[in-house]
Computed example of a mutant assay.
Amino acid sequence: MRCVGTVVRGIRTPIIKKDDDLATIVVDSLMAAKESEGFEFRDKDIVAITEAVVGISEGNYVTVDDVAKDLQEKFPSKKIGVVNPILSRNRFSIILKGIARGMDKITLLSSFPSDEVGNGIMDEGILDKSEFDLASVISEDEYKKTFGSWIHPFTGINMVDFYRDLIESEDCEVEFVFSNNIRTILDYTNDVLTCDIHTREKSTALLKAEGANVYGLHQVLTEPVDGSGCNPEYGLLGSNKATEEKLKLFPKTGQAVVEEVQRRLIELTGKQIEVMVYGDGAFKDPVGKIWELADPVVSPAHTSGLVGYPNEIKLKYVSDNKFADLKGDELKEAIKDEIRKKAENLMGQMITEGTTPRVLTDLIGSLCDLTSGSGDKGTPVVFIQGYFDNLAND
């Protein structure tokens, strides 16, 4: 009888740089880990590769000047509204530097009391006691008077001050306004760059219907500028700060990478191994209230065996209801038999209540993100065994 279910291993690799053969590095690192740790490959094992090393190896970078040039072509007035940017130095500061370098004036509209993924911009306790509510439009002067220079407890930074200094350092004028209605920006300008991640299509369509000249971050750098990198599907979304003058974009060759890694592993092991690229996990921190997912998707590329949703019964429900009178080995065998007989699609049935109705790559990618972390673990590859196992698999 198997006594262990899912096993997750962070796989150490060499430091990956531009033009490295990523597929070879991933496969060689897995084979070295196999020898070191003594595991064997099995069908339905999963190999996951962080999007960062895919983007790095393909050299998918753009500069601040590339961003400025693309935006000048889209907004020749050089006076734009920047709507709902994420409040993140890593994610948005270099993008904002490019916007400011290309424009003469920015009206920056921020949602409140936090951005799309939960980064705070004001003290919610003060907001509750103030004259303002979530439907208010708050000017920058009113923000300063009511909320002061609010410091985020985790970063120690006020992002309004930080973004103002950054914009003005590029000789660009800036005006801040705080509103949860993106139409508010049309009171200031008709040229708008929307910066939200997960509602991007809705936002651009809404403002376009109002007659605005509008683009989203997902529509910037979709093609190369002067030989730069690009991402045809996501543009600047999913990018990260590389240097003070450069951004690493979300990868564009991920599907070719996962298919090549899968091909090599099947050839080497004889097992049907699935492969995916993952970025941010799709989970929320209950203390900091930050929703981790600042990428446009969790997995921009994966092999076909990872498509779909979990199809699981809730053991607790079956135990407490259908087999309420059973205990011990008799209960266990009855539940294992129930698992073996389950339908291929349990959607909507009471027996699944309490299971997680999310796509597989979102769940697996979240597991991988928590395993690899975002710092110095040095494990950009994650190897998962037993994810698709259940109690009936002996």
Rank of each mutant, 00 (worst) to 15 (best):
N190D: 14
T243N: 02
M347N: 12
T194Y: 04
K248M: 14
L87H: 07
D320K: 13
G227F: 09
T155I: 05
T253E: 14
V83H: 01
G270R: 04
K18T: 15
A301H: 04
L221N: 10
R12F: 06
S88A: 08
G365T: 08
P300G: 11
Y309R: 12
G348V: 13
A48T: 08
Y387Q: 03
R264N: 09
M350H: 09
I106M: 05
L87T: 06
K252L: 14
L30P: 05
Y278D: 01
V82P: 00
N213S: 09
I126F: 01
Y278E: 00
P296G: 12
G373W: 03
C3K: 11
G81S: 08
V214K: 01
C3G: 06
R164T: 13
T243E: 07
Y61S: 03
I95Y: 04
M350S: 14
M350C: 00
P300E: 11
E312G: 02
S203I: 10
A301V: 10
V214F: 01
A242K: 13
V192R: 01
K377H: 12
M159P: 00
F41T: 05
G270C: 05
Y234H: 13
P76Y: 12
E168V: 12
T24E: 13
S57Q: 03
Y387T: 07
E233G: 00
T356W: 08
K322W: 11
G148Y: 08
E175R: 06
W150C: 01
F41W: 09
S29A: 14
I266M: 10
E312M: 08
E173Y: 01
N158E: 07
K322D: 09
K327E: 15
G229K: 02
A343T: 14
S304Q: 11
S88L: 06
V192N: 01
V177Y: 03
K316M: 09
V192I: 13
V225R: 04
G328P: 04
